[in-house]
Amino acid sequence: MAAYHRPSELTEALEILAAAPVTVAAGCTDLYPATQAKALPGDILDITAIDALRGIAREDACWRIGAATTWTDVLNADLPATFDGLKLAAREVGSVQIQNAGTVAGNLCTASPAGDGAPCLLTLDASVEVQSAHGRRVVPLSSFLIGARRVELQAGEMVTGILVPAAAGAGGGDFLKLGARKYLVISIAMAAARIDVADGAIREAALAIGACSPVATRLPALEDALRGVALAEAAARVTGEMVAPVLSPIDDIRGDAAYRVEAATELMRRLLARCAARRMEAAA
């Protein structure tokens, strides 16, 4: 008979992890669809009773999104404008039912190329906190996601939180998702942006594209090119040459590769235009 562990303390969870291989279960919105069985298969470590892992907290150097924090928790949290993109992404994850159960950390651990969480968290310079019975390490998100459905997690380890550095609190975030229908849709392409502006010019632009490569990716060339540029002119600076080289999309049932690159470029352009328009509105 398979074991089902549901500890209320993190230390307990880490001991269970150390003892034998288990599947870590949080929202279960990806685990159940992967089986036709009536119950989760194998030995399970359910982390949703660990209160310490739930919620978003401001710590000295960062914001901590606990590993059991749901998308709805993100939506309901009082967060600065830099998290606005993540909140928009939260609203577009599956459906209300999925948002009420699914977790941000679980979304990263599933590591779907079309995962809705990764692009915004990349623009937030997020890291992943990983713990085991033997200790704790912090892995930059860009290193944590190593491929389609592959993450940098060793046996006996689990994700305990997502850390967003205080420095990423500057500026405003935004997000756009393209799918073939409105709700319950897997992205064809996504664009995320966090932009810090001083005196009308871009001080820092953190930009990312999702669903167009095995893992979501930042756009360093474009970010460099936009530094110092007036926000109002940013959209016009987006070219395929600055976006396409870092993408490696596939052809699938949702769209072909060439289209994805083009759509990603267009989404990024629109995202920057929307950021500019919003700033104009705020200034007016």
Partner: peptide, 11 residues
């Protein structure tokens, strides 16, 4: 909260 019962461990 609305959830999908098919995705919810009964515990």
């Amino acid at each position: 909260a609305a959830v999908c019962a098919c995705l919810t461990p009964s515990v």
